[in-house]
Design a protein around this nucleic acid. Structure first.
Length: 298
DNA sequence: CCGCGGGCCTGAGAGC
DNA sequence: TGCTCTCAGGCCCGCG
């Protein structure tokens, strides 16, 4: 699935079509995604105006008039596409818009379609259906079941070395798992954790407690890691995210940060560090692939 | 409380 | 061509 940079890219792509616009009609093609969709989902959203389109971690947030928020998560394979020709079936649209063709999604997995006032059609496609949607009250959004206990945004000021060190103190879990845990920091996934740890020269297998000294103060490692996480995310957003098998922008164009991966998906390749002769290793942590250089990352 | 493994789904790609 | 196996940007749950 998209991690934070991909979701942010999707948000920016959807903004012109959705922000400030009313949902003329919503078509729900099945009762559930990963979870059952809310009761009367389509009826509750029809006619509502989207005041703004936001993001929290890997979630998209459509702030609606009437004090509710449409919460959307893309799971592993969720994708939004925008077309500008309403009232045509998708098959017909694909004849018109080459961008639809370019995304290559199977219309069988078009689960939710939002027809926006003004003519844009926003289609949610998700083959694996690990994504989900929910409607929650705007006041208390942070306390709803999706966000309660979630850690700070890595690009916000609440994420800093003092914070991270306080979370990491005494934790024996691997750094990799610690950074993937959304309660510690919200929005990182497998790719960006691997990349941030490489850029920080930290082994993913090291204990998380290495970020903290005995007084819960940040160590030098922590001071290195925090800005690196920000940097890798910002670079990825600037590149329009990463395009692997499932992900494309709302207009069908592709991100290109995958070309900047230094370790992710590079098992067996020579480490990119000048003069380093080691090859990238793939290991499995908590059931997920970790890529790292055993020489540069300690 | 903590860490791990399994499960949820479908599709792509490798190997035979 | 087609089968079988592995793997995939996430997250939740139950187990020990």
């Amino acid at each position: 699935m998209p991690e934070l940079p991909e979701v942010e890219t999707v948000r920016r792509g959807l903004e012109p079509a959705m922000s400030g616009r009313r949902i003329a009609r919503l078509i729900q093609r099945r009762p559930d995604l990963r979870f059952p969709l809310p009761e009367r989902f389509a009826e509750r959203l029809a006619g509502r105006r989207i005041e703004r389109l936001g993001r929290r971690a890997k979630y998209l947030l459509a702030h609606l008039d009437g004090g509710e928020v449409l919460v959307m998560h893309l799971g592993m394979s969720g994708r939004f596409t925008v077309t500008l020709t309403p009232d045509l079936r998708r098959a017909e649209r694909s004849l018109v818009g080459e961008f639809v063709h370019a995304t290559g999604t199977d219309p069988a997995h078009d689960h939710v379609v939002l027809e926006m006032e003004g003519g844009a059609v926003v289609t949610y496609n998700d083959p694996r259906r690990f994504g989900f949607m929910d409607i929650v009250a705007a006041d208390g959004l942070d306390d709803c079941r999706h966000f309660a206990g979630m850690g700070p945004e890595p690009l916000g000021s609440a994420f800093n070395s003092a914070y991270l060190a306080s979370r990491a103190q005494g934790r024996t879990t691997d750094l990799k798992a610690f950074l993937l845990d959304q309660r510690n920091i919200a929005g990182l996934g497998n790719i960006y954790v691997c990349e941030a740890l490489f850029r920080s020269g930290l082994s993913p297998h090291r204990a998380a407690s290495c970020l903290s000294d005995r007084k819960a103060r940040p160590t030098e490692r922590c001071e290195r890691l925090v800005p690196t996480i920000r940097q890798v995310l910002e670079e990825a957003i600037a590149s329009g995210g990463s395009t692997l098998r499932d992900y494309a922008h709302a207009d069908g164009s592709l991100g290109y940060f995958q070309h900047s991966f230094k370790v992710y998906g590079r098992e067996g390749e020579l480490c990119v560090t000048p003069a380093c002769t080691a090859t990238i290793k793939r290991t499995v942590q908590a059931g997920r692939s970790t890529f790292h250089c055993t020489r540069c990352q300690r």
